[in-house]
């Protein structure tokens, strides 16, 4: 699936890759996310959603990180065709 408009990680489909564009989370959590590799330009893999749909696991810099929808809905990017990271 390819689209030219940006979407949030919360709306991205499982198994897809997203090239990050902006992070709108604020405060200490923003810092934490940046430190973990949620930086503009980086490519994130959307792994699986937990049984209840939240949180969702993301693969970033070779590490799996679970985010709640409160955070993932504030991180935006574009679908990336390849799994190039």
């Amino acid at each position: 699936m390819t689209t030219s408009s940006s979407l949030s990680l919360a709306d991205a489909s499982t198994g897809s890759y997203i090239r990050l564009e902006r992070i709108e989370v604020q405060g200490v959590l923003r810092r934490r996310l940046l430190d973990l590799g949620f930086v503009p330009g980086n490519v994130i893999e959307v792994m699986q959603k937990s049984p209840l749909g939240d949180p969702t696991a993301f693969r970033v810099n070779n590490t799996t990180i679970a985010l709640r929808i409160e955070e993932s809905s504030l991180i935006f990017g574009y679908y990336e065709e390849s799994d190039e990271r």
Partner: peptide, 9 residues
């Protein structure tokens, strides 16, 4: 060494 990008932060 296997995860330099994140470690360099």
């Amino acid at each position: 060494a296997t995860s330099l990008e994140r470690n360099l932060n």
